[in-house]
């Protein structure tokens, strides 16, 4: 459900960008999203195009690029991917998605909480890096 709020953030940010750069239209925008966010790309696209209607952004083509998540432990050197992370993720804390009533891990909303919710699967250290796959960013704009 956070697809709508994230799409809204992207649209508003791009509209501010267009105003500051003096752009009346944009042909294409590439948005890179981290795997941890678990975006439903269909909902995100729908939200993006819906929220762009009637704005200078209307007509811009959206390209979504998924960035895979990787973790590396600074203590023992182990590396793991999002599938492993999801399996060892602490289920102690949850966020309630409404109106569906589904409980989700806070990690999908706030990926930087990884160190609060995960430990290295090999040595149990919290001193690991989330190398990639956590961000939502505009990676390219074609005017």
């Amino acid at each position: 459900m956070h697809e709508w709020s994230l799409a809204d953030a992207v649209v508003r940010s791009l509209l501010g960008f267009m105003a500051s750069e003096g752009l009346s239209s944009i042909k294409e925008v590439e948005v890179t999203w981290g795997e941890i966010l678990e975006l439903d790309t269909g909902i995100f696209e729908q939200a993006f195009y819906e929220l762009s209607k009637g704005t200078p952004l209307e007509g811009a083509k959206l390209i979504l690029m998924e960035e895979k998540a990787y973790f590396r432990c600074n203590s023992c050197g182990a590396e793991w991917d999002f599938k492993t992370a999801d399996e060892i993720l602490s289920r102690e804390f949850e966020i309630l998605e409404e109106p569906a009533g589904v409980k989700e891990s806070p990690l999908h909303f706030l990926p930087d909480l990884a160190r609060a919710l995960l430990k290295c699967p090999k040595c149990s250290s919290r001193d690991f890096d989330l190398i990639s796959g956590k961000d939502l960013r505009v990676s390219k704009v074609v005017a």
Binding site: H2, S5, A9, S90, E92, F93, I95, P106, F109, L110, P111, D112, L113, R115, A116, L117, R126, D127, L130, K134, D135
Partner: peptide
Amino acid sequence: IVGDSPVPLRGEDKMSLLKMMIAL
């Protein structure tokens, strides 16, 4: 959101977390 769990974050990661929390 995470109760009393430790959140050992460094500078850029902390900034990124706070931006996302406030943005949402």
